[in-house]
Amino acid sequence: MENGEIPENAPELCPGPQSETAGKSDSCEGCPNQEICATAPKGPDPDLVAIVERMATVKHKILVLSGKGGVGKSTFSAQLAFALAARDFEVGLLDIDICGPSIPKMLGLEGREIRRSNCGWIPVYVESNLGVISIGFTIPNPDEAVIWRGPRKTGLIKQFLRDVDWGELDFLVVDAPPGTSDEQITIVQSLEATGIDGAVIVTTPQQVSLIDVRKEVSFCKKVGVEVLGVVENMSGLSQPLSEFKFTRMTETVFDASGGGAAKMCNDMGVPFLGKVPLDPQLCKAAEDGRSCFSDDKCRRASAPALKMIIEKILAQKNISTENGA
């Protein structure tokens, strides 16, 4: 039970955990949550007030989600941040994948640390207009496992939103872990009052991935977050014909006989943003922590596909493709 929600096993006449009579009314007798409700603090979450104040300087907030792991969601988040920064937007990238933070690696920031000032935590900067926050910056040993329960994850995410001095941002890109659990619920509830532009959902073409993406779309609809669209990643293997011939060939890697992400989007009434090939050069750019848009080899396959997708996202929100969000 979090943030004042009524638990599923509550009695029919439950007054609600935020009520002054919570845990004390006649209807509370016998409820397994009675003691929790009676002793829990009442009133609105004080963290949300501070988060609203901090987020007042952020114009646009985009969540990057996936139904399952291994679909390239963090790669997309990193390249989206690189692309927006390259257009002279002020960009923040927030990694809330607490147990598997990969964003520091994908932006070439391994080994860096978060600094503090009187105004709060200072993001780690790739460029002067691209700042990053991740739990990965706070773990001395990168091989150390983060074994946290939900409440501690929730607390850290709120702290990132409340205490980080982002300054004036055009975009805050949030890279969330796969699924529809603590981290996703926390980020949506924490940013709800400040306005979320929407979510981009990343998938691969095969049914085993699309099954989970349908749940992610359903989650967004239930919590009131607009689905900006679905990206079909690893949509065929893109390789040059030879070292000297740059025309590329694309081979099927995953079974898309069911229609892939495009059909799923049509069935569920959400936008399909496009396909990104499984490009070894994009994979190498992510491993090296650099933008694929500045790589001549990436420009022949993955970069054009990503650029088209990003332009569709900006067009949906009527944002100029140049600075001036």
Rank of each mutant, 00 (worst) to 15 (best):
P7N: 02
P7C: 12
P11G: 08
E12D: 12
L13Q: 10
L13T: 04
L13F: 10
G16Y: 08
E20I: 07
K24L: 12
K24A: 08
S27M: 05
G30A: 00
C31F: 08
C31E: 05
C31M: 07
C37W: 04
C37P: 06
P44A: 14
P44E: 15
P44T: 12
P46Q: 10
L48A: 11
I51A: 03
V52C: 13
V52R: 13
A56T: 14
V58A: 07
G67E: 07
G67V: 08
G70Y: 04
A78M: 00
L80N: 01
L84D: 00
A85T: 01
E90P: 01
G92C: 01
D95S: 06
I96T: 07
G100L: 04
M106C: 03
L107F: 02
E110Y: 04
G111C: 09
E113A: 12
E113V: 02
S117A: 12
W121I: 06
V124A: 09
Y125N: 14
S128H: 13
S128Q: 15
N129F: 10
I133Q: 03
I135L: 11
G136D: 06
T138A: 14
T138K: 11
N141H: 09
E144S: 15
A145V: 15
A145F: 00
V146F: 12
R149I: 12
R152I: 15
G155C: 07
K158C: 03
W166P: 01
G167I: 11
E168T: 14
E168K: 09
L169N: 03
D170L: 11
D175N: 09
P178H: 07
P178S: 11
S181L: 09
E183P: 06
T186C: 02
T186E: 00
I187T: 04
V188A: 12
D197T: 13
G198Y: 00
A199K: 02
A199L: 08
T204L: 07
P205I: 01
Q206W: 09
S209P: 14
L210M: 10
L210G: 07
I211K: 08
V213Y: 02
K215I: 03
G224R: 05
S235I: 05
G236S: 08
P240T: 06
K245R: 08
F246K: 14
T247Y: 03
R248F: 06
M249Q: 13
E251R: 14
T252C: 13
F254C: 00
F254P: 12
D255L: 15
S257E: 14
G260S: 09
G260K: 03
A261M: 10
A261H: 05
M264V: 10
N266E: 15
M268C: 10
M268L: 15
V270N: 01
V270P: 00
K275D: 07
P277I: 05
D279L: 00
D279Y: 00
P280W: 04
C283T: 00
C283I: 01
C283M: 10
G289T: 12
R290F: 02
C292S: 08
C292F: 00
D295P: 12
D295M: 13
K297Y: 06
R300Q: 12
A301E: 06
I310K: 05
E311G: 03
A315M: 13
A315I: 05
Q316R: 13
Q316C: 13
N318V: 01
N318Q: 14
T321P: 05
E322W: 08
E322A: 14
